[in-house]
Design a protein around this nucleic acid. Structure first.
Lengths: 155, 155
DNA sequence: TTTGTTGCAAAACGTTTGCAGCCTC
DNA sequence: GAGGCTGCAAACGTTTTGCAACAAA
């Protein structure tokens, strides 16, 4: 956790140096928040959290998110509903997402066949895959149980 | 093509009847446009096209898209950039999407292992999968060739 | 000192909503 | 005839942009 933030920070520094971009406190603050909040965050939440501790603007948050995406330190998801969500990507195994249509909670899963399948698809189409997303939508364990108890199919 | 529109129209009629919703010309117009435009369309394009032939509003387009999603006759995608895109779903095999970050074009691919993989993930988590999306982002064949010729890595 | 980056506010964008009138049933 | 659905326009929430002030190099 703590460790992956440190390593990510160093990679971020390398990236900023390489492209002659400035190392500002705000940029590292955004990185830290994503790496320590645990899970998925949306830009607005990120901004509200950071505002408690720093003087930051939404513009900077969005600007920094763009940089972090570019250097591969974070991932962005646009699920069916709501604003985009961000998660740390460094030292995290590739995974798919299970998104519950009822409670909106997101679970993650891995499958060894996923990477192979994606590599094959890329080769078949001579497509240079940079990143990918697999989203499964439906009802999670808890919401199925909940509706079974009340006898209702959905809210 | 023509045939799947007809079948989809009948399923839409069944759905509207079942839920005591009204069969309006506008609703069928939206369905037809999606089934005949071939590929992915965004709501605004749909609206602009329909406006040429009918008196419709954006509100009706969005409202109808919601209905068509609900009865499974269309699919909705939120790729990394841009507004949501819609595609017909009736009589179309499940497929993943290859999205080019350069030219924004979308290719489709199928893999027999996909359905199995998704079923397994669902069972493992006792998650009732309703639908899913697999998006691969990167550079398509043509854009790779294009940058190899100019010697530039990207635009 | 230079100029990339910031905070702020306004604008842009896609989508949703409120409402009076229309048209399906 | 009743009320679900419509077009229109205004409102909404998220993201982007323009700009003067600031601070990293």
């Amino acid at each position: 956790m703590e460790k992956s933030l440190k390593a990510a920070g160093e990679l971020f520094t390398d990236y900023l140096r390489r492209y002659k971009l400035r190392r500002t406190a705000e940029r590292y603050a955004v990185l830290e928040e994503i790496y320590t909040c645990g899970g998925h965050v949306e830009a607005e939440t990120l901004f509200q959290e950071l505002k408690k501790r720093y003087r930051v603007s939404r513009a900077t948050v969005y600007n920094t998110l763009e940089l972090l995406l570019e250097c591969g330190l974070i991932l962005r998801h646009r699920f069916e509903k709501g604003p985009a969500q961000y998660e740390k990507a460094y030292n995290v195994p590739f995974h798919g997402h299970l998104v519950c249509s009822d409670c909106e909670k997101v679970e993650e899963f891995t499958d060894s066949r996923l990477n192979d399948l994606i590599a094959v698809a890329g080769e078949t189409f001579r497509f240079a895959v940079e990143h990918w997303n697999l989203y499964l939508y439906g009802r999670c364990k808890h919401c199925q149980l909940k509706s079974a108890q009340t006898g209702k199919k959905s809210v």
